[in-house]
Protein backbone atom coordinates (compact mmCIF):
# COMPACT_ATOMS: atom_id res chain seq x y z
CA UNK A 1 0.00 0.00 0.00
CA UNK A 2 1.38 3.41 -0.93
CA UNK A 3 1.65 6.18 1.65
CA UNK A 4 -1.13 8.16 0.03
CA UNK A 5 -3.58 5.27 0.07
CA UNK A 6 -2.69 4.64 3.70
CA UNK A 7 -3.59 8.23 4.58
CA UNK A 8 -6.86 7.95 2.67
CA UNK A 9 -7.81 4.76 4.54
CA UNK A 10 -6.75 6.40 7.80
CA UNK A 11 -8.97 9.37 6.97
CA UNK A 12 -11.99 7.15 6.32
CA UNK A 13 -11.34 5.29 9.60
CA UNK A 14 -11.15 8.58 11.52
CA UNK A 15 -14.39 9.71 9.87
CA UNK A 16 -16.15 6.60 11.13
CA UNK A 17 -14.67 7.06 14.62
CA UNK A 18 -15.84 10.67 14.71
CA UNK A 19 -19.30 9.70 13.53
CA UNK A 20 -19.49 6.97 16.16
CA UNK A 21 -18.56 9.48 18.87
CA UNK A 22 -21.16 11.94 17.54
CA UNK A 23 -23.91 9.34 17.79
CA UNK A 24 -22.85 7.85 21.13
CA UNK A 25 -21.77 10.95 23.09
CA UNK A 26 -24.40 12.74 25.16
CA UNK A 27 -22.59 15.95 26.10
CA UNK A 28 -22.85 18.62 23.37
CA UNK A 29 -19.18 19.59 23.74
CA UNK A 30 -18.09 16.02 23.01
CA UNK A 31 -20.38 15.98 19.99
CA UNK A 32 -18.92 19.24 18.72
CA UNK A 33 -15.42 17.77 19.11
CA UNK A 34 -16.57 14.63 17.29
CA UNK A 35 -17.69 16.78 14.35
CA UNK A 36 -14.26 18.43 14.38
CA UNK A 37 -12.56 15.02 14.19
CA UNK A 38 -14.80 14.15 11.24
CA UNK A 39 -13.81 17.42 9.57
CA UNK A 40 -10.10 16.78 9.99
CA UNK A 41 -10.50 13.26 8.62
CA UNK A 42 -12.13 14.62 5.46
CA UNK A 43 -9.24 17.07 5.03
CA UNK A 44 -6.83 14.13 5.37
CA UNK A 45 -8.63 12.26 2.58
CA UNK A 46 -8.57 15.40 0.41
CA UNK A 47 -4.82 15.93 0.86
CA UNK A 48 -4.09 12.22 0.37
CA UNK A 49 -5.95 12.36 -2.95
CA UNK A 50 -3.66 15.01 -4.42
CA UNK A 51 -1.55 14.16 -7.44
CA UNK A 52 2.12 15.28 -7.03
CA UNK A 53 2.32 19.04 -7.59
CA UNK A 54 -1.44 19.55 -7.56
CA UNK A 55 -2.15 22.68 -5.47
CA UNK A 56 -5.93 22.41 -5.51
CA UNK A 57 -6.50 20.07 -2.52
CA UNK A 58 -4.39 22.33 -0.32
CA UNK A 59 -6.52 25.33 -1.32
CA UNK A 60 -9.66 23.30 -0.58
CA UNK A 61 -8.38 22.17 2.81
CA UNK A 62 -7.45 25.73 3.83
CA UNK A 63 -10.95 26.90 2.91
CA UNK A 64 -12.40 23.92 4.77
CA UNK A 65 -10.40 24.77 7.90
CA UNK A 66 -11.72 28.34 7.83
CA UNK A 67 -15.28 27.01 7.60
CA UNK A 68 -14.62 24.51 10.41
CA UNK A 69 -13.23 27.23 12.71
CA UNK A 70 -16.26 29.44 12.09
CA UNK A 71 -18.68 26.56 12.69
CA UNK A 72 -16.90 25.54 15.90
CA UNK A 73 -16.97 29.12 17.15
CA UNK A 74 -20.71 29.32 16.52
CA UNK A 75 -21.26 25.98 18.26
CA UNK A 76 -19.18 27.01 21.30
CA UNK A 77 -21.07 30.30 21.53
CA UNK A 78 -24.40 28.45 21.56
CA UNK A 79 -23.02 26.02 24.16
CA UNK A 80 -21.84 28.86 26.40
CA UNK A 81 -25.21 30.58 26.25
CA UNK A 82 -26.94 27.33 27.13
CA UNK A 83 -24.55 26.66 30.02
CA UNK A 84 -24.50 30.22 31.45
CA UNK A 85 -27.95 31.74 30.73
CA UNK A 86 -27.14 34.85 32.80
CA UNK A 87 -24.36 35.84 30.40
CA UNK A 88 -26.89 36.05 27.57
CA UNK A 89 -28.68 38.92 29.30
CA UNK A 90 -25.85 41.39 28.88
CA UNK A 91 -23.99 40.67 25.65
CA UNK A 92 -21.27 43.12 24.70
CA UNK A 93 -22.25 45.32 21.77
CA UNK A 94 -21.70 43.70 18.39
CA UNK A 95 -21.30 40.25 19.89
CA UNK A 96 -23.59 37.24 19.71
CA UNK A 97 -25.88 36.11 16.93
CA UNK A 98 -23.44 37.33 14.33
Amino acid sequence: MTGQALYAVLGCGLFCLGFHALVVAAHPLRRLLAVNVMGSSVFLVLVAGAAPGDPLPQALVITGIVVAVAATALGLNLLLRLAVPAAADEPADGEGGS
Partner: peptide, 24 residues
Protein backbone atom coordinates in the same frame (compact mmCIF):
# COMPACT_ATOMS: atom_id res chain seq x y z
CA UNK B 1 -30.10 25.40 17.24
CA UNK B 2 -27.18 23.44 18.63
CA UNK B 3 -28.81 20.21 17.49
CA UNK B 4 -29.46 21.80 14.12
CA UNK B 5 -25.80 22.88 13.91
CA UNK B 6 -24.50 19.37 14.64
CA UNK B 7 -26.89 17.84 12.08
CA UNK B 8 -26.05 20.34 9.36
CA UNK B 9 -22.28 20.03 9.94
CA UNK B 10 -22.48 16.23 9.82
CA UNK B 11 -24.42 16.44 6.58
CA UNK B 12 -21.91 18.84 5.04
CA UNK B 13 -18.96 16.67 6.05
CA UNK B 14 -20.50 13.54 4.58
CA UNK B 15 -21.05 15.52 1.39
CA UNK B 16 -17.45 16.78 1.45
CA UNK B 17 -16.07 13.26 1.96
CA UNK B 18 -18.00 12.21 -1.13
CA UNK B 19 -16.54 15.18 -3.01
CA UNK B 20 -13.03 14.22 -1.85
CA UNK B 21 -13.50 10.68 -3.19
CA UNK B 22 -14.78 12.03 -6.52
CA UNK B 23 -11.82 14.41 -6.80
CA UNK B 24 -9.44 11.54 -6.03
Amino acid sequence: SLRYLLATLTGSLAYLLGVALLYR
